[in-house]
Amino acid sequence: MISISKSAQVSRLADIEDSKFGTSILIEDRVYIDSFVRIRPVGGRGDVRIGKDSFINAGTVIFSGNGVDIGQWVLIAPNCTLAPTNHAYASRERTIRHQGFLPSKGGIVIEDDCWIGANCTVLDGSLLRKGCVIGAGSLVRGEVEAYSVNSGNPLRKTGMRGD
Rank of each mutant, 00 (worst) to 15 (best):
I2K: 02
C114P: 06
Y32S: 15
R156P: 05
I25A: 13
Y147T: 00
V133L: 05
I2D: 01
N150G: 05
I76W: 07
C114M: 07
G59P: 05
L82G: 07
D124Y: 04
R94C: 08
S24Y: 07
V68Q: 03
G135C: 12
W73R: 15
A88C: 10
I76N: 06
S24G: 13
I2R: 03
L13I: 09
C80E: 01
A8V: 05
Y32G: 06
N119K: 07
K20I: 07
V140H: 05
G142T: 06
D18Y: 09
S3T: 10
M160P: 12
S24Q: 15
K20F: 14
S19A: 15
V68F: 07
R40T: 14
N150R: 11
G137S: 05
I116R: 05
S138R: 13
G107R: 04
K157I: 09
S64L: 00
F55S: 08
C132R: 04
E28N: 07
W73G: 09
G159S: 10
G46N: 03
D18N: 07
D69M: 04
R92V: 04
T121F: 09
G107L: 10
I70W: 00
S3Y: 05
N153V: 04
T158E: 06
I110H: 03
N119Y: 12
G137L: 06
G65H: 13
I39P: 08
V42I: 06
I2W: 04
R129G: 05
E111S: 01
V37E: 00
N119Q: 11
V31E: 03
Y147N: 12
P78Y: 10
N57V: 13
D47Y: 09
S91R: 15
T81Q: 08
F55E: 13
K6P: 02
V133W: 09
Q72L: 04
V140M: 01
I33Q: 05
S7Q: 06
E17C: 02
I76D: 08
L26T: 03
V42F: 02
G44N: 05
R38H: 06
G46K: 02
L75N: 08
E111N: 00
H87S: 01
V74P: 01
G43H: 10
R141P: 03
C120S: 15
N57A: 06
E93S: 14
N153H: 14
S54N: 02
R38C: 01
M1D: 10
R156Q: 07
G67M: 14
D163W: 00
V109A: 13
Q99G: 09
R94G: 11
D113S: 02
I62W: 00
A136F: 12
G59T: 00
R129Q: 14
V109P: 10
E93R: 12
C132L: 06
R40V: 11
E145F: 09
S11R: 02
S126F: 00
A88D: 14
K52N: 15
F36Y: 04
G100W: 11
D112F: 01
T95C: 02
G117M: 07
S104H: 03
R38W: 10
C80W: 14
E145I: 02
R97W: 13
F63R: 15
R156H: 13
S35G: 11
S11Q: 11
N150W: 14
L155W: 09
L75Q: 08
G117Q: 03
V48R: 01
V42T: 14
